[in-house]
Design a protein around this nucleic acid. Structure first.
Lengths: 199, 199
DNA sequence: GCGTTACGAGTCTGACCCGTATCGTATTTC
DNA sequence: GAAATACGATACGGGTCAGACTCGTAACGC
């Protein structure tokens, strides 16, 4: 991002904040409506935002830079576990997967899958977004171990994948159309807690 | 697909099977090399296949139809569980996730994530590929219940998501770069079997 | 050999897009 | 009010691509 630096003082008309907002919003809207990342054109964004193309190029170097900013805007606030019950905290965190504050996020996420694997930048962006969330879950699991609610010999990293994976493939890929998405967090957490082996 | 119908008998030169193959192969190659679905152009495919554009349009109505056929070709043979140990069968099935006979499949799969959510056709194609695999896993789980190895009260559908999800997000999204992909199937299966709750 | 169809290669029109430049106008500082 | 910079709109050259088409040639049935 270039604008709103600590600017000593510049002459001339200042950049419109409304234009900034409109451009970002238009980008996210178009993505959420089904445009894929590369089908997204600056021209379409400008039209949608009611803005001249030059206004976009004045702020960002190109589509990639704009996308980076737009997606950053999307990640929103992380869910905050209450800290009482380990199970309830896990249900909260699992339920928050792929469910950002911004409802457009759910539609946009699948589009990122290809980008994540092809561009190191996008991969880093993705990791930057999810690694603090992983950390949050890691802490809850560690707390569970400390409190004796969870076994001490579990593999925390694998457990995180166990909790996250089912939710993610369901939200991003609609992996199994017969699975009820709403009750899934609870059922996943309880299944992981209990295990499936007869005993 | 249009060719190789039960054709009563047609005059003129028959369609070249080699061209059919070359076009499909070129399509898969280009996808595996990093082209996204929509960046893929008929022109590029024709050039890569050493084929005229008309030869492609003579067989398929457009890019979508061609892609549908190409991806169908990709799904390959399903892993076949041995049927001795439920755990070993599950490890085999989980290990086979996203690991098709065709090595290009792993590179291509992430590209499909956006398509799956935007086109009903692509969604159906995806479900057609994975639902028999889900069925295979379902049968193993049911067998485990019958044999008393697994508890009778488990939710089979959720358990499948539990086993599949972690592997899929790791292979498709590189969700957690620190997770060792090779040992993951075993660790996932064992964790799901045992559960994580202290007891 | 003749009609038919396919072949690879290439051409052509019409979209669409990028990134830059140039309008006339609006908003700011000095 | 003058200089500077922003604005939306639009035009531009350069590029890629879809699809339909045209070549001259090749392979088949009769």
């Amino acid at each position: 991002m270039t604008s709103t630096a600590d600017a000593p003082r510049s002459p001339g008309r200042p950049r419109s904040i409304r234009a900034d907002e409109a451009i970002i919003e238009a980008t996210l809207d178009l993505l959420a409506e089904g445009s894929t990342i590369e089908a997204l054109s600056i021209e379409a964004i400008a039209t949608r935002a009611g803005v001249g193309k030059a206004t976009i190029y004045r702020r960002w170097a190109g589509k990639d830079a704009l996308l980076l900013d737009a997606l950053r805007r999307l990640k929103g606030v992380m869910a905050q576990p209450a800290g009482h019950s380990v199970r309830d905290d896990l249900v909260l965190l699992v339920g928050a997967i792929g469910k950002n504050v911004d409802p457009r996020a759910a539609k946009i996420m699948p589009c990122l899958a290809p980008a994540v694997n092809r561009s190191a930048d996008q991969f880093q962006l993705y990791q930057n977004i999810i690694s603090p969330r992983r950390q949050l879950m890691r802490e809850v699991l560690r707390r569970g171990i400390d409190e004796g609610v969870l076994r001490a010999d579990i593999d925390v990293e694998v457990t995180m994948a166990l909790l996250t994976g089912p939710m993610l493939i369901q939200r991003v890929l609609q992996w199994n159309p017969d699975l009820d998405e709403q009750s899934l967090p609870e059922r996943v957490v309880d299944a992981v807690l209990a295990g499936i082996q007869a005993r």
